[in-house]
Every structure is written in C-alpha cells, then in structure tokens.
C-alpha cells in the first residue's frame, strides 16, 4: 500500500508528490503509422506531453509551498524516454522513474493504467498528479482508470489545488460551471491548463537534471504479467488510417435569402452545432 509521509503541521508538511508524465511525439513532427498500424515514434521527435508540464509545475509549486516535500516524475515509455525525463527534471523535482519493458509496446489506456498504478504503489505517494489528457490522442482515460485500479479518489480537471495535512481540495472544471471537491490523502489529481503557467527550465536546472537519480523498473519489478499489457492486453486495434483532405471546400452561396439557414446547415454538417 502507498506509504504516506509523516505529517505534522508544526514541523511542516512533507508531501510525497509523484507526477505522471507521458512522452509524446512533438506536435510538429511528421507522424505516420507503421506497417503494424502503430504510431512510428522517433526518439528525436519525443517531447514531454505539453499538458504534463502543468502537472509538473503544480508538483513543483506544492513542493515550494511545503518545504521538505519530494517530487518524483514517473513515466512509462521506451528506454529512450530517459532523455525526456531529464528534460522534465530540468524544470525541477528530485528524481525520476521510468517503467520500460519490450512487452509494454502497444499498451492501451487500461494497460497503461495498470502499470502506472503498480509503479505508484511501489514508489509510494501522498499526491499523484496527471494532466487531464495527453496531447497525442486526447484520451483522458488513464487518470480515472489508474484511480479505479488503486481504489482511490481522483480529483479531476483541477483548475486550483490546495493541500493540508490530511486532504486535498481542488476547484474543478465541471461540464457546466465549477465544483469544489475534496479527498483524503493519498489521492490522485488531474490538472487542466487553467491551473498554472509552467516554468521554463533554467540553465542551472538543466545542469542539475543530469545528476538527479533516475531509476528504471521492468514489468517483473512491478509484478505484472506481460499478457495484461502491451499489444497483447490491448482491447482496441487500428484497422486503417487515411489522410484527411485539407482542400477548402469553396462552396459559394449567392444572396441574402436563405444564407443564414445555409450557414447553420453547414455548421451542423460539420458537427459544430
């Protein structure tokens, strides 16, 4: 079970913070599917999922507020993701953990959640931070799935986060308006882009990142059997992919009469309305 750091408001709150960071292809990189219908990932195009910069930033802010807290950055990805983890560590944080195993290739959201849940348990945490969705596929399923596997609360779509000795409180972007939501620690939190402005790494941070500890876990280290994850455990499959035409449609409608109706119909056809 996750270990909670001893907390005593008198002597300060030591929070064990883990930020889950996904490595994604850069938004400008040329992307294509390989013959196995899996995204071809090239190491030089890999970046921190831009939305996870908000999770990292929030973790660092918590640490600044509660001196003595620790920030660990956790990623499941290919062995080369160590480079992306170093970039995250350049923003700040104490150490990183990479879960990497050949059997993980092709994992779906639930497989990923199984791995992250096991790694979070092994590391131990008070707060596990996620972004609400990753910029590659905008799935937004991993945080909720990880919480369900751990049987823990997820404070989702946070636009503001505060913690005290025993609980975390967020302001949450609901589908209509906001909620304030509270959960006992340990808890999972997913953040939106509205929560902060991520910092840029400083020169000092970049230098320091090279010396920070970075551990690698295999599936065996987490006690997960290979058939539960990776392509073997995946329940969805890409059948084919095709380029969407970027040609403008160029339809011209002449006259005031019926023009408004044509625009509305066009918006409906294109699923805007």
């Amino acid at each position: 079970m996750a270990r909670r750091a001893a907390r005593n408001l008198e002597v300060g709150l030591h929070v064990n913070i883990v930020v889950c960071m996904k490595e994604t292809p850069s938004t400008t990189a040329e992307k294509r599917f390989g013959p196995d219908m899996r995204l071809e990932r090239r190491k030089e195009d890999a970046i921190i999922n831009p939305f996870d910069e908000y999770g990292i930033e929030e973790g660092l802010r918590l640490q600044e507020k509660h001196a003595g807290s620790t920030v660990t950055i956790l990623c499941m990805g290919p062995a080369t993701a160590t480079e992306t983890l170093r970039k995250a560590l350049a923003m700040g944080g104490d150490r990183a953990v990479l879960v990497s195993d050949p059997a993980l290739a092709g994992s779906d959201a639930i497989g990923t959640a199984r791995v992250l849940a096991a790694a979070l348990q092994k590391i131990g945490f008070d707060i596990a931070l996620f972004s609400n969705a990753a910029a590659d596929a905008y799935g937004g399923v991993v945080p909720g799935a990880t919480a369900a596997i751990l049987d823990m609360p997820l404070l989702s779509y946070a636009t503001k986060l505060d913690i005290d000795g025993a609980s975390a409180t967020i302001e949450r972007q609901a589908d209509v308006g906001f909620n304030t939501v509270q959960a006992n620690l340990p808890a999972l939190v997913s953040v939106t882009k509205a929560i902060n402005e991520p910092r840029y790494p400083s020169m000092k941070g970049i230098m320091a990142s090279k010396k920070k500890p970075l551990d690698t876990f295999s599936l065996a280290d987490l006690g997960i059997s290979p058939e539960q994850v990776g392509a073997a455990g995946s329940r969805e499959q890409v059948v084919s992919a095709e380029k969407v035409s970027t040609q403008r449609k160029g339809e011209i409608y002449v006259g005031n009469e019926g023009a408004a109706e044509r625009v509305v119909a066009f918006l409906v056809e294109n699923k805007v309305l």
Partner: peptide, 10 residues
C-alpha cells in the same frame, strides 16, 4: 474513500 463535492459555482 471518495472525492467529495463540497460546493458548486460558476
């Protein structure tokens, strides 16, 4: 062990 809604606004 739930995520408890304590308020709604906006």
């Amino acid at each position: 062990n739930g995520a408890k809604i304590t308020g709604t606004f906006g």
